[in-house]
Each structure stands twice: as structure tokens, then as C-alpha cells.
Write a protein that binds this DNA or RNA. Structure first.
Lengths: 138, 138
DNA sequence: GTCCTTGCAAAGCGTTTGCACAGAA
DNA sequence: TTCTGTGCAAACGCTTTGCAAGGAC
């Protein structure tokens, strides 16, 4: 069912170096939309010579081949996720975590947007996540 | 009908210095969600001693008092708009312009988001704007 | 041999901070 | 006088670029 990462990269025309596999695997296993620095810090143990430059290079490559998608909800740093079935995002304004939530399909009147070619739609919610609510009551 | 900017700032508890009025007025007259640098470059003629620091200071102040809202659709720089009636945004991936479009209200099943306190919802569309379509055909 | 992947160092860019001066109250 | 608004210069954080060394082919 799940294709090995090696083959998945090859299929997209990316030569599956060990570093690239590891970065993709880390992103695929993440649910919290890591930053480039998160990826770097998570893999530096296993890949002691890893550099931030390589992380950025690989992310860029994966994005260009539509294996990874940038998530632009936090203002300062870019976050990333692997492409997966449609979903929306919820950002907690307290802890900054971005959660995947069930897909919200925006309904709009196409006639009022005549002339615009719409290629992507996203719905972003924000507020306070369950964890931060609990912490504020204790 | 429209309150003078002086009074609007005062009402929000902001002392209405000339610089602050000018920056707010520029933002209020803009439809293209300017960056801090856009504001700086637009006003430097009229306010020759203006500095970027002041632009950032004033933007921050206006945001804290809910007169201005940051718009976070372009990845690199922050953009800003004055608060006005609900609307959504369309970003042209060719020219980078962010357009205000009629409000799109996201419909979602609150039960599936139980535990999350939702404070803000936004719908962002992206694609190609009419102007860039025309330019690509000529 | 050539091409590709990696990584160090430096630069780039938007933004923030430290601090000081000048004007307002 | 004290407080507030402004602005220079420097620092900062994230990202990109230049370039070279090592490995794959």
C-alpha cells in the first residue's frame, strides 16, 4: 500500500539519496508542520554532517516536485507538510502549533470572481487549541 | 460620514501625530495591501525624515489597536490593510498582487472541531488575475 | 573523465532592538 | 521637568547564494 520512499522519489524523477529519503520520511511522519530548523535539529543526530543548506535544498526540490507543500500560516518561518488528502489548517495563537483539521470547502459565487482563474483555495482557522485551553485553567 | 483620521486615532487612544495620520491615511487609501517598504517609499517624499523604524513602529501600534490588520499571504514580506467589512483575499501567483474579493464564509461542522476555540476564519484563493491573463496572451 | 549531492561561509532581506535626540506636555 | 515620538545604527533570524570538495556514475 505505502510505497517505499526510495521508489516514490524515483517516480517523481528525484534521485533518492539517503539524505533526501530521511528528510522526506521525517516530513511524512510529522503532524506538526515542521520548519526547516525543526527538520535540521531532528536529523542532525542521524546525519551528523547535515547542513541547513541541504535541508533547504531538499525541501525546495521536494516542493518543486509536488511531494511537499509549504504552509504559510505562521508569520516568521515557513513550515512544510507532505502532500496528502485535502484538509484545512487550524493555528493556535497561543502555542503556534498548526493542526490539520477536516477539509473545509469554501463555497463562493464564481460569477462574482469572473476573470480570475482560481487554482488553489485554502481555509485557515485560528484560535486556541484544546491543550492551551487546559493549561490556562490550571 | 467618514471620521477624520485624527479623531479616529484619538478614539482608539492613539495620539494622532502627523506621521501616524499619514501612514494610516496611506493604508486606508490603498487597495493592494502594501508592505512596510511600500509605505516607506510612498511617504518619503512627503516626510523626508521618515525612517523604516517609524513605519514599523506605527504599523505595530495600529495593529495593536485593531485599526490595521496584517495580511500573511505572500511568503516573504508582511502586508497590511486597514480593517474594513468582511472580505476574502485572492493572490495572483504571477504578479503577487493580493485582491480583496467578496467575503467567502467557510461552512464547517463545529462538532468535528470540538475542543478548539475558533477566533478567526479566513479563506484565501490564489491563481491568475485578469491582468496577468491578458498579458500572457499578448 | 563528468555530473550531482552536499556543506561551509558569506551575503541578502525583512524586521526588531538599543539608544539617543528633539519636541510636546 | 518628564514623557512621547522619531530615527539612526546595529543586531537578529530565516533563507539564499557562491563556490568548492567529495562521491556517484
Amino acid at each position: 500500500m505505502t510505497m517505499p520512499v526510495r521508489d516514490m522519489l524515483k517516480e517523481k524523477g528525484i534521485s533518492p539519496s539517503y539524505t533526501r529519503q530521511k528528510i522526506y520520511e521525517f516530513l511524512a511522519a510529522s503532524t506538526d508542520h515542521p520548519t526547516a530548523d525543526d527538520i535540521y535539529r531532528a536529523l542532525i543526530r542521524e546525519l551528523p554532517t547535515l547542513s541547513k543548506t541541504t535541508v533547504y535544498n531538499v525541501i525546495k526540490l521536494l516542493c518543486e516536485h509536488d511531494l511537499v507543500k509549504p504552509v504559510n500560516m505562521s508569520s516568521s518561518e515557513m513550515r512544510y507538510e507532505v502532500w496528502h488528502e485535502p484538509h484545512s489548517h487550524f493555528r493556535c495563537t497561543v502555542c503556534g502549533t498548526i493542526y490539520d483539521i477536516p477539509p473545509i470547502i469554501p463555497r463562493y459565487d464564481a460569477k462574482r470572481l469572473e476573470g480570475f482563474i482560481i487554482k488553489d483555495e485554502e481555509v485557515n482557522l485560528s484560535g486556541i487549541c484544546p491543550i492551551c485551553q487546559q493549561e490556562s485553567t490550571t
